[in-house]
Simulated assay, not measured.
Amino acid sequence: MTDPGLYRHLDEMVPWNDRLQVLEVIGIVDEAPEVKTFTFRSDAQTWFRYKPGQFITLELPLDDGPIMRTYTLSSSPSRPFSIAVTVKAQPGSVGTRWMFDNLGIGARLKAFGPGGDFTHHNHPAAKYLFISAGSGITPMMSMLRWLNDCAPGTDVSFVNCARRPEEIIFRKELELLGSRMPGLSLSFLIEERSSRESWFGHMGRIDAVRLPLLSPDFREREVFCCGPEPFMRAVREMLQSTGFDMAFYHQESFGVPPVEPVPAPFPELPANADADAAPAAAAVPVRFSLSDVEGECLPGQTVLQAARASGVRISAACEFGLCGTCKVRKLSGEVEMNHNGGILDDEIAEGFILACCSKPLCDLEIES
């Protein structure tokens, strides 16, 4: 029986708060080989406010310790009572394979977000060109679903690339949208034929010859691209070679830089050096209030590195100020924070910082 409490108007609900509520799985759908969509609702029956194309970070409770994985939302904020991620289990994947094997209806996960600025809301245009490959289609589906609900007449040229016909994610829905959105021009580009189903469409890889055939006026469009890094690099180079103005090109990427090693408490001195000449480390005291731990942050260290050195766990995924997973409240002190959009101005005003990209300027107390 459906819970009567679910029948609530939007104005009777408050937005989802990743610091207070977790997600509950309410749907699992097979989209393509090794691709599933997981749909969630808030365990507190709140609604979801985000921009189409943004992502969330899930905390997956593996047996040997939780791991953080970032996934783009494939759902649209025009349908705010649930959110969905569509994930592909790559060879050797750990987090996604755990989701496939362990998540069922009713399962609950901690999540952080939403975050990211890969969205057409930030770049309004008269014409769009979406180019995607593989699971890179997820932010495009979020944006296209929003456009279908809110501005179905928008001029969108969509080029989706896949290895084989059966690997086209959301193919049936895309074809249905193509029949309902008068401004949508939909093109599939397949690399190789399949024994599982016949194919009479375009074959090959996207290049400077095929793109003008699939989207003749591509130079007049705002371009959004998502897929594996080699694919996006090829698209960038192709557009540049045609003289396309790259100010109108946008791509999504979760490239994570190498994690900086935590500096040693004192610099290592040569064997023949005078021990009395060792410079004193200008450590800044950092207190982690919830853990009741007194630590220190050495020159060049971030709050996240200081926490790890002190044995305090702060969740972190991207570690370069984008995902917002390591958001913590600063109770006292000041920091220098250089983030990449993972925290909002009103959150900063409330005293929150991103531990991965904040360095103390004085004695600091963190709610962690």
Score class of each variant (00 low, 15 high):
Pro212Asp: 14
Gly227Met: 03
Met246Val: 08
Cys326Gly: 05
Ala111Cys: 04
Ala111Lys: 00
Asp3Gly: 03
Arg193Gln: 12
Asp101Gln: 11
His250Val: 06
Gln21Glu: 15
Ala277Lys: 14
Ala271Ile: 14
Ser358Cys: 00
Glu319Ile: 02
Asn272Phe: 14
Ala349Ser: 10
Asp30Phe: 07
Thr138Lys: 10
Ala278Asp: 05
Leu103Gln: 05
Phe254Leu: 10
Leu304Ile: 04
Gly27Val: 06
Ser179Met: 14
Phe244Ala: 13
Phe100Met: 05
Glu59Ile: 15
Ser241Cys: 02
Gly27His: 10
Pro66Gln: 00
Cys225Tyr: 09
Glu191Arg: 03
Ile83Met: 12
Phe170Met: 13
Pro216Asp: 10
Gln90Glu: 15
Cys356Gly: 01
Ser187Val: 03
Pro139Glu: 06
Lys88His: 12
Pro91Lys: 06
Ile168Met: 05
Glu268Pro: 07
Ala355Tyr: 11
Trp146Val: 01
Gly5Ser: 14
Gly183Trp: 04
Ser358Thr: 01
Val35Thr: 09
Phe100Trp: 02
Gly53Ile: 06
Trp16Pro: 06
Met68Arg: 04
Asp346Val: 15
Pro77Tyr: 05
Met246Tyr: 07
Asp274Met: 05
Glu294Ser: 14
Phe218Asn: 11
Val328Pro: 09
His9Gln: 14
Phe244Met: 12
Arg205Gly: 02
Phe40Tyr: 03
Cys357Pro: 00
Ser93Asn: 02
Leu322Thr: 13
Thr70Met: 03
Gly201Lys: 00
Ser315Lys: 08
Ala107Asn: 08
Val286Arg: 09
Asp63Arg: 11
Lys36Glu: 09
Glu220Ala: 14
Ser315Val: 09
Arg180Gln: 15
Val312Thr: 05
Phe40Ser: 02
Glu59Asn: 12
Leu189Trp: 01
Pro270Thr: 09
Leu364Met: 07
Arg97Ser: 12
Ser289Gln: 11
Arg164Pro: 04
Ser78Ala: 15
Leu60Lys: 04
Ser253Met: 09
Ala111His: 01
Leu62Ser: 04
Pro265His: 05
Gly351Trp: 03
Phe352Glu: 09
Glu167Arg: 14
Asn272Tyr: 12
Pro360Ser: 08
Gly113Trp: 03
Phe254Tyr: 13
Phe320Arg: 13
Arg180Trp: 11
Thr37Gly: 06
Glu220Phe: 00
Ala44Ile: 06
Arg210Cys: 13
Ala151Glu: 15
Leu103Ser: 06
Met203His: 02
Leu10Arg: 11
Phe40Lys: 01
Gln21Val: 12
Ile353Tyr: 08
Met246Ile: 11
Pro212Asn: 12
Ala32Val: 06
Val284Ala: 03
Lys327Phe: 09
Asp149Ala: 15
Gly243Asn: 10
Gly204Leu: 02
Phe248Gln: 15
Thr119Trp: 01
Ile28Glu: 11
Asp245Ser: 07
Thr138Ile: 13
Arg205Val: 11
Leu129Arg: 01
Ser310Tyr: 04
Ser194His: 09
Leu10Asn: 06
Ser310His: 08
Phe352Val: 07
Val22Cys: 13
Gly134Trp: 00
Asn160Val: 15
Arg163Ala: 03
Arg97Ala: 10
Thr325Val: 14
Arg287Gly: 11
Val29Ile: 12
Gln54Met: 08
Lys88Val: 11
Asp346Ala: 13
Tyr50Gly: 06
Gly333Leu: 05
Tyr71Ala: 06
